[in-house]
Design a binder for these strands. Structure first.
Length: 489
RNA sequence: GUCUCCAUCGUCUAGCGGUUAGGACACCGGGUUUUCAUCCCGGCAACAGGGGUUCGACUCCCCUUGGAGAUGCCA
């Protein structure tokens, strides 16, 4: 039997890291076993349906490189892949269950159900389970519609072998009492739709969140009643928020789209996500997508819930950022620079290379290159290293100026020589090399923190750099004269 | 309330009866360095508790505790 896995999101909200982790495991399983990955949209809840959510789902999956072999947009042998377009199938299935005595029509009003709840009763009281012909007729006659409920046996138990949890057994009495399979609006609930579709789409492995374990017996009952094959069930451990609770609205940044905007690489997201709930069994941490597909196996999946740790994601992002070559990094960084209005001219690749080691997320890129903006306006005090005074600093800068020229000659070929000549210069003036560099850094970038200076100067350009240093010399000289040569502090 | 699942450093995890309980992130030191960062080295830090089983339990069983989930005409 061929391996076929499906990811079946419902378009009712944005895709969060937990959902996408499931999708990732789906893809990894399919890829590692040479199977197919099916995307199916479960839009059977008309009230919560959100068209924007669908875009978010597609966008998030694509961004992460989790591409499907069959799905709503590309079709496939079992199209359509949108449940709202498959209603007849569920209705037919419901009819079969009805005629086979495995399900029954329920005429209870939502008011009655609400009352039941308020009175403290948990679950459905099976009020319509064994209606007389007469009661049934009056129910139909009332015209207020009906739902189809599964007739869950009252005795015995239902069990299955979960691929991750092992044997799961549940007493019939503990199974949700007669869940609704077909709603009064003619749409199926998950319990019917997913089972029918999984069978029809020949799904071999169902990977889904552990929250589904309690309702799996329902699914088995439906399957059995419909005489459908049973796929392997693998219930994945949940991915919880930092507080250890189920991911939800209160957890801030959990939407995949948000991570994307903040400049996390899809490679890093995938890498980190894969390691929450799965382990290769050895000490490896850094993986490319292909490496994951190669290493992935069901045995490595964990049972215990995990927390999506943002700190580790940062680390992964840095690692993957550093794996990008100049051109690739430049492309990733470009939109963020444009957004922030930082103009690097034709030096995008060089600029990217300059900040690679300093980036955690792409949104940080603009501030590392902010020296490209206006010429800094600095006071003599700001320009003067602690161990020097204005006069000495001016003198150093003046002497350093010509020595910097080779920096612009080409790539970084001359940097070592420039470095050596500047060290010599500092030495000659009985100054610290670090102080000289800091004075140059302040003059050229207006900041005590910058990427490596020579590269920074190259990206800034010869003209701007010379201008800024000249200006700094002027400022320092003026201050030195005013002070009559005294300390400029 | 009832049912289900889960339980190793703060976090992600390795371990599948005999280990100084390993790695990674974070954190704290130190080193390299032109600032920042990277990088390198070192340190801190865990088997929830109690019973069994066994010559021997982190590993197997039970209970307790803790956490999570389910209990919808949501998925």
């Amino acid at each position: 039997m061929s391996v076929r896995v499906r990811f079946a999101p419902s378009p009712t909200g944005s895709m969060h890291v937990g959902n996408v982790r499931t999708a990732l495991f789906d893809v990894l399983l399919a890829r590692s076993l040479g199977g197919s990955f099916v995307l199916r949209v479960e839009d059977t809840d008309r009230n919560r349906y959100d068209p924007q959510s669908l875009e978010d789902i597609y966008g998030s999956l694509r961004w992460l490189g989790l591409t499907w072999d069959e799905g709503p947009d590309i079709g496939g042998p079992h199209a359509p892949y949108v449940q709202s377009e498959r209603l007849e199938r569920y209705q037919v299935a419901a009819e079969r269950l009805l005629s086979g005595g495995h399900a029954y029509r329920c005429y209870c009003s939502s008011q009655r159900l609400a009352q039941l709840r308020e009175s403290g009763h948990v679950g459905y009281d099976r009020h319509c389970r064994d209606l007389s012909e007469e009661q049934r007729r009056s129910g139909e006659a009332s015209g207020s519609g009906s739902v189809v409920r599964l007739r869950v046996p009252e005795e015995g138990s239902v069990g299955f072998e979960d691929g991750i949890l092992g044997t799961v057994e549940r007493a019939a009495a503990d199974i949700t009492a007669d869940p609704v399979l077909l709603k009064s609006d003619g749409f199926p609930t998950y319990h019917l739709a997913a089972i029918v579709d999984d069978a029809e789409m020949e799904i071999s492995h169902v990977l889904r969140s552990q929250e589904w374990v309690p309702s799996t017996p329902i699914h088995l009952l439906v399957q059995e009643a419909l005489d459908l094959p049973r796929p392997a069930y693998l219930h994945l451990p949940p991915v919880n928020g930092p507080d250890g609770r189920k991911l939800g609205k209160r957890h801030g940044a959990t939407a995949v789209a948000e991570f994307r905007e903040r400049g996390y690489l899809p490679e890093a997201m995938v890498n980190h996500l894969a390691l929450v709930g799965w382990s290769p069994g050895d000490d490896r941490e850094l993986f490319s997508f292909d490496e994951l597909a190669a290493a992935f196996s069901l045995e490595g999946i964990n049972k215990a819930p995990g927390i999506f740790d943002h700190g580790k994601l940062d680390w992964f992002n840095g690692q993957h950022l550093r794996r990008l070559d100049d051109a690739a990094l430049a492309q990733r960084v470009r939109p963020y620079l444009a957004e922030a209005g930082v103009d690097v001219g034709g030096a995008l690749d060089a600029a990217a290379a300059l900040i690679r080691e300093r980036l955690t997320v792409l949104v940080d890129a603009p501030q590392w290159l902010s020296f490209l903006g206006q010429d800094p306006r600095l006071s003599a005090a700001e320009l003067t290293p602690k161990r020097l005074d204005a006069a000495a600093t001016a003198q150093l800068l003046r002497a350093a100026q010509p020595l910097l020229e080779p920096v612009w000659a080409g790539a970084d070929a001359a940097d070592d020589a420039v470095d050596a000549s500047l060290r010599q210069l500092a030495d000659d003036h009985a100054a610290k090399f670090g102080d000289l560099m800091m004075a140059l850094r302040m003059a050229a970038t207006g900041s005590k923190v910058s990427p490596p200076l020579f590269g920074t100067m190259r990206v800034l350009g010869a003209e701007a750099t010379r201008r800024r240093i000249a200006r700094a010399i002027d400022t320092l000289t003026a201050a030195a004269n005013a002070n009559g040569g005294a300390t400029s502090d």
